[in-house]
Computed example of a mutant assay.
Amino acid sequence: MSKKVLIMSASTGGGHNRAARAIKEELEQKTIDGFNIQCEIVDSLKLVNNTMDKIISRGYEKSAIYTPKAYGSVYRFSETSLVSKNEFKGNLLTSLMAKKFKKLLNDSKPDLIIGTHPFPMIALSTLKKHSDGSSDHGLHLGDHHNTIDVPPMISVLTDYTTHSTWIQNEIDYYIVGHEYVKELLAYEGVDTEKIKPFGIPVEKSFLSNREKEEVLNELGLSSDKLTVLLMGGSFGAGNIKETLEELLDIDRDFQILVITGRNESLKEKLEKKLATHNHNKNICVLGYTNKMNDILASIDVLITKPGGLTTTEALLKDVPMIVPYYIPGQEEENLDFLSNCGAALRTTKKYTLSVLLKVLIDDPSRLDMLKKNIKSIRKFNSSQNIANLVEDVLLSMN
């Protein structure tokens, strides 16, 4: 009989779902006792309630774009001792999720659960904690005698940092992006045997790419010029308009590719700005694209906000980063990781984007140094290693 794995994700930013797809791709190639592993991705917030999904997913998106400081304040508060680990289990969202997941587990009967987002893992940890049919401690999960079997659980952290929402006693393994993150979890009291620094998973197709000349020519850019890519994540967050203006005024010879993601309004504003701004740069403005594997392999410098998956993809393609903006919280901590590893430059009041980029253009050895540091920290084969771990856990249950 085939084994079944549920991957619990959520649509707050693009990274959680992309990591889930990467894991699913590898897992479905595995066989146990002659049967392929069945794998299903569950969008956890949509499962709970479409309205809840819109409030949380769009709320994250809107706060990222319009009120990043407020988002950062909430993030930091939830890390304080006032909101300690395992204290998220009694809130309304957790209760709603736990009820829905109880039905999901009864219907689906998975052999193992993987989470690429902390919210569903909190709810599932709640269920596991009370799976002996004891009191629901105010969670009102239904009939106490209707016990539920919660299988082994693996959390996949999609940023280069930790947060107390990820840390639950009921989690069997944590997959993290780097040994630094393993140390952060260990400092929080997680057993080091449970922590696997495999890296953040990306889909296998991302690792292949077309030739640089072909890709840049398609975009109307030259393969002979230094190419700077400016972007701000899947929904175009970050001060892209102001950053582009700064790039246009730099007195060096380079070309610019801007990707605005799904933010059509931003794309229109940039195109209007370029029509009126006097400059001598070759520029291409793109909206959403599914060719990031080709594009990242064809550029020289990436100017971006440091989301977990964006950061991982840049590392895998050897692309040095300059980070002039970020969403306070996990992205700020991703930037701390990149800076400590010498894989990215961060702008400051004095060390502006203009100053940093001019030095990289004038002294290519600086770019080479960043690339060397990137090579020392990037992690290939994350999805395969996760799939191997899942296989080992499932075999141990036979």
Rank of each mutant, 00 (worst) to 15 (best):
9 S>K: 01
11 S>P: 07
16 H>S: 09
17 N>G: 08
25 E>A: 11
26 E>K: 09
27 L>T: 09
29 Q>L: 14
30 K>R: 11
35 F>N: 01
37 I>H: 02
38 Q>V: 01
41 I>P: 02
45 L>C: 07
46 K>L: 05
48 V>T: 05
50 N>H: 09
51 T>P: 03
51 T>F: 10
52 M>D: 03
67 T>Q: 11
70 A>R: 12
81 S>V: 10
83 V>D: 08
85 K>I: 04
87 E>V: 05
91 N>M: 00
94 T>W: 02
99 K>I: 14
108 S>Y: 00
111 D>P: 15
116 T>R: 12
117 H>P: 03
118 P>W: 05
126 T>W: 09
131 S>T: 09
139 L>H: 05
139 L>D: 02
141 L>S: 01
143 D>P: 00
153 M>P: 02
153 M>A: 11
157 L>Y: 05
164 S>K: 12
172 D>E: 13
174 Y>G: 09
178 H>R: 04
179 E>L: 08
180 Y>C: 11
181 V>K: 02
185 L>P: 05
187 Y>V: 00
188 E>Q: 11
189 G>V: 10
189 G>Y: 09
193 E>H: 11
194 K>N: 05
195 I>H: 11
198 F>T: 03
205 S>K: 15
206 F>A: 03
208 S>N: 15
218 E>M: 08
223 S>C: 08
227 T>N: 11
228 V>N: 05
233 G>N: 14
236 G>C: 07
236 G>Y: 04
248 L>A: 06
249 D>S: 14
251 D>N: 15
253 D>T: 12
263 N>P: 03
264 E>P: 12
266 L>F: 06
275 A>H: 06
278 N>V: 11
280 N>I: 12
284 C>H: 07
299 I>V: 04
301 V>R: 00
311 T>M: 14
317 K>F: 06
326 Y>T: 03
326 Y>Q: 07
330 Q>S: 15
335 L>G: 00
339 S>W: 03
343 A>W: 14
348 T>Y: 03
355 V>P: 05
369 M>C: 04
375 K>D: 06
376 S>G: 01
381 N>A: 14
384 Q>K: 10
385 N>T: 00
388 N>D: 15
388 N>C: 07
392 D>Y: 08
394 L>C: 01
394 L>I: 00
394 L>V: 01
396 S>K: 00
